[in-house]
C-alpha cells in the first residue's frame, strides 16, 4: 500500500458517501444516471468475486464489502425508493453499447483465459466507461447539482491517483499490469472535460452548467 493508492481509495469512498448523502438529504435522485450506477454495481460484483476466496487484508475486505453494498444500495434507492424522482427521460445512454464491447474485449485481451480472470478484466474495462451514461445525462440536461459534481470530481480523482500508484509500484515494486493501467488512463481521460468545468466553474462557486 502506498499513499497514492490509499488516498485514491479514500476518494472513491468519499465519492460513494457523497452520492448516498445527496440522495438521502435531498430525498431525490434527480440528475443521477441510474445506468451508471448499475454499471458500477456490475463492476464491483464481477471484480470482487474473490471476496471470500482470496483474503488480502482486513482493509481490503472491509472496503470491498462497503463498495459492493453501497453500490447495490444506490441502485436500489434510484430504482425503487426514490423512483419518482428518477429522470429516466434524460438517462438514455444504451448500456449494451458498453457491456458488449467490454465483454468481447475481456474475452480477447486478458492475462489468462479463465472465468475469474475474464470477469476481473471485464470489470476493469467496464469501470473505465461506466461513467459515460452519467456524463451523457449531464450533457443532455446541461447542468449538474453541485454535490453531484463533487461526487464526479472525487470519482474521477480516485482513478487518477491510482495511475500515480501504478507508476510508484512500477518503479519501486517492479509491479505492472498493462490492462489496469491502460483502462485507468482511459477512465481518467474521460473525466478531463468535466475536471476543466469543475475547476473553472464549481470551485468559483458557480453551478456546473455546460455551455448551451
Amino acid at each position: 500500500m502506498n499513499a497514492f493508492r490509499l488516498v485514491g481509495d479514500l476518494c472513491h469512498l468519499a465519492a460513494i458517501v457523497l452520492l448516498l448523502l445527496k440522495i438521502w438529504k435531498s430525498r431525490s435522485v434527480a440528475g443521477l444516471s441510474g445506468k451508471s450506477q448499475i454499471l458500477f454495481g456490475l463492476v464491483f460484483v464481477t471484480r470482487y468475486l474473490d471476496l471470500v476466496t482470496n483474503f488480502v487484508s482486513p482493509y481490503n475486505t472491509i472496503m470491498k464489502v462497503f463498495f459492493l453494498s453501497s453500490s447495490i444500495a444506490t441502485v436500489y434507492l434510484i430504482y425503487t425508493k426514490f423512483k419518482a424522482t428518477y429522470d429516466g427521460n434524460h438517462d438514455t445512454f444504451r448500456m449494451e453499447f458498453l457491456l458488449i464491447p467490454c465483454a468481447l474485449l475481456a474475452i480477447v485481451v486478458n492475462h489468462e483465459f479463465s472465468p475469474m480472470e475474464i470477469l476481473w478484466t471485464f470489470s476493469i474495462y467496464l469501470e473505465a466507461v461506466a461513467i459515460l451514461p452519467q456524463l451523457f445525462m449531464i450533457s443532455k440536461t446541461g447542468e449538474a447539482e453541485t454535490i453531484t459534481s463533487h461526487y464526479l470530481f472525487a470519482l474521477g480523482s480516485y482513478r487518477g491517483l491510482y495511475i500515480m500508484n501504478w507508476l510508484y509500484r512500477y518503479y519501486y515494486e517492479n509491479n505492472f499490469d498493462v490492462i489496469a493501467v491502460v483502462a485507468g488512463i482511459v477512465q481518467t481521460v474521460l473525466y478531463c472535460d468535466f475536471f476543466y468545468l469543475y475547476i473553472t466553474k464549481v470551485l468559483q462557486g458557480k453551478k456546473l452548467q455546460l455551455p448551451a
Binding site: R5, F67, H111, W120, N175, D177
Partner: peptide, 10 residues
C-alpha cells in the same frame, strides 16, 4: 507473474 500481485488492489 507480475499481474497476480495486482489483485491486491480494490
Amino acid at each position: 507473474c507480475m499481474e497476480k500481485q495486482m489483485k491486491d488492489e480494490l
